[in-house]
Nucleic acid binder design. Structure first.
Lengths: 339, 339
DNA sequence: AAACGGAATTAAATTGTTTTAATAATTTAA
DNA sequence: TTAAATTATTAAAACAATTTAATTCCGTTT
């Protein structure tokens, strides 16, 4: 391991001061071009490694940005993260990623760790039940915060997410247009703003079409493939014999379709199913899934952009930015036929 | 934002020195119990936040561990990461996650960033073509390195991964046992050690059963669902009319099954398909996927454990640790019937 | 009352960088 | 040739913690 190469090592080896070395390595115009070259060359030769903690101790900028979401293994968040990663990478920011699994405590630990590391900012998809103090903790310590995919009531934080109410109404209207009247809504929870918005979109679309809303047709549940798969039994044994299902997301929809197929029914003919998110998998499922694109890439990109802009000093007004979803019609939905 | 609370703020407010505060907050027996309590109370009241960069500058331990894999959106890595996360969380280590997408450059950037941040160690699943220097870069700078899921020829680094050759031979033998003779191998690459091992396992099993190996039956390709889906066309038009396929992983298998279903054939009857990894999705696909559990959770846990042990000083011998995979038989495979 | 021992506290050095004001060296102008 | 202006370099003070050796403050013992 030899011994650590630091600015002073380079300085001594060249008979210069650390100040010059520091300036030169950061391309300051204060140091002469040829000395700069000489210094850079020497740094490379010695295998110098920039010590960010020492630097950030002085500058109070760490180049670290925290990102915390419910679960990175969920492709919905995965796609958002990918967009954030691209944008942050481009701006040479390091990012620290974490899941909170909807544990407020795990989320707070993350925020605290980030503060200890001197994080420059956070992008988060707040855990269910996030208390305002936790958000304030970040803010009072000078760490700006952007919300993504979920909003948080009672705050005016900049938020980027899809227009869920509108998106679900697109899917519901599509089914209504195909003649369906008994439409279930499968998966998810009503404990998040997203949940309430989505249910509202479903309700609104039905009402507008003069269809009565039957609370029994709302089957909440995990937002996973497994969740959808398990909901199939429940769904198929409803006394109302629904002929269509609006699912919380694509994962639930794919799980539900698998469950329905196992029961011997044909999705797209006997039962129509819509998803939400338009994951990569949606287009290659069997049958191909009719769904709503939630524009994950755009949502992630905008959130990252917003944070970077804020860090660069521009203070755009806070508020919720809703990204408009789009319908993707495929083979999992078809004309109404009585069951 | 008021002004930053630091040790000296607390010290002044209590008429003590920063040394005492520092010691007290870290539960040193050097400071009297009642002063310690008083100090902790005051720290809480003032909203003190521990400055890790200042501390780690002095102690040269950052509590940061880097983890870099091919793609966190791939559930195979996702499951490994989840296990690593659990283990590191339990030991209060912060971890920084990154994808390298098999770009050696992106991987090196990550290692460099981690060095700059004073990372305590790295767990990585090396990108294809990783040069030894990059690994050495970490080591010569005192950052221990553990490999996971993939190995790297020419190094004696501690490595934790599944026994791929054995695992694939399990799947191949299962198909041979069902009477299949023309068995294709779909997806993946032969550029990684994993790839070569898996192909070897397939070849070995065939040879042992006296079946001739036909190179045309090896269809390499992306290790994604999309990849499997697209391989279906190729697969179905092979002149050898294979009746079974050993897939690189579950994603490829599910994609392939979807492709076969789209072509009107029934998986498990007309064609048998095996996966690899035993992802959560495997058990709920239609038909349920016969696959090989790669013990992701165990692999991740052991890798994290190995790094933590090393950081704690225990110097277990290096070397490759192969975790034994297990067969999971479901409905995607069935008795041989000529196509 | 002096000497001692143990417990609690602290002074001061250290970690590796950045930054500002000051100095030294060089060039230009008069 | 000298003064002024410009360019290049550096000394030294931050930044916020940790750590070691020294000091202070007790109560005991002699």
């Amino acid at each position: 391991m030899a011994q650590k190469i630091k600015l002073s090592t380079i300085a001594e080896s060249l008979g210069l001061s650390t100040a010059t070395i520091s300036l030169a390595l950061r391309d300051s115009p204060l140091v002469a071009t040829d000395t700069r070259e000489k210094i850079k060359e020497q740094a490379r030769a010695l295998g110098y490694i920039y010590n960010r903690r020492a630097a950030s101790l002085r500058t109070s900028r760490s180049g670290i940005i925290g990102v915390v979401v419910h679960d990175i293994m969920n492709p919905f968040y995965g796609e958002i993260l990918k967009a954030i990663e691209t944008e942050l990478d481009r701006n040479r920011q390091t990012f620290i990623l974490s899941n909170h699994y909807d544990s407020v405590e795990k989320q707070r630990n993350f925020i605290e760790t980030l503060l200890q590391l001197g994080g420059d900012g956070v992008i988060m998809s707040p855990a269910i039940g996030t208390p305002i103090e936790d958000v304030r903790l970040a803010e009072t310590n000078g760490m700006p915060l952007i919300l993504v995919a979920r909003s948080l009531e009672g705050t005016a934080l900049p938020t980027y997410r899809g227009d869920d109410s509108y998106g679900i109404s697109l899917a519901t209207n599509h089914l209504i247009g195909l003649g369906h009247k008994s439409i279930a809504m499968i998966g998810g929870t009503d404990q998040t703003s997203t949940g309430r918005d989505r249910y509202q979109g479903y309700v609104n679309a039905l009402r507008k079409a003069g269809i009565e809303v039957d609370p029994e047709l709302r089957i909440p549940g995990p937002r996973s493939m497994q969740g959808g798969f398990e909901a199939a039994v429940n769904f198929l044994s409803l006394p109302q014999k629904p002929t269509a299902a609006v699912c919380w997301n694509d994962l639930v929809a794919i799980g539900l379709m698998n469950g329905i197929a196992r029961a011997g029914l044909v999705v797209g003919q006997d039962i129509s199913v819509t998803g939400y998110d338009d994951l990569e998998q949606a287009s290659i499922s069997v049958p191909a899934l009719t769904t709503v694109s939630n524009q994950q890439a755009e949502v992630g990109r905008l959130a990252a952009r917003a944070l970077l802009d804020r860090l660069a000093g521009s203070h755009e007004p806070d508020g919720i930015h809703l990204i408009k979803p789009e319908m993707r019609i495929r083979q999992s939905t078809g004309l109404y036929r009585p069951r």
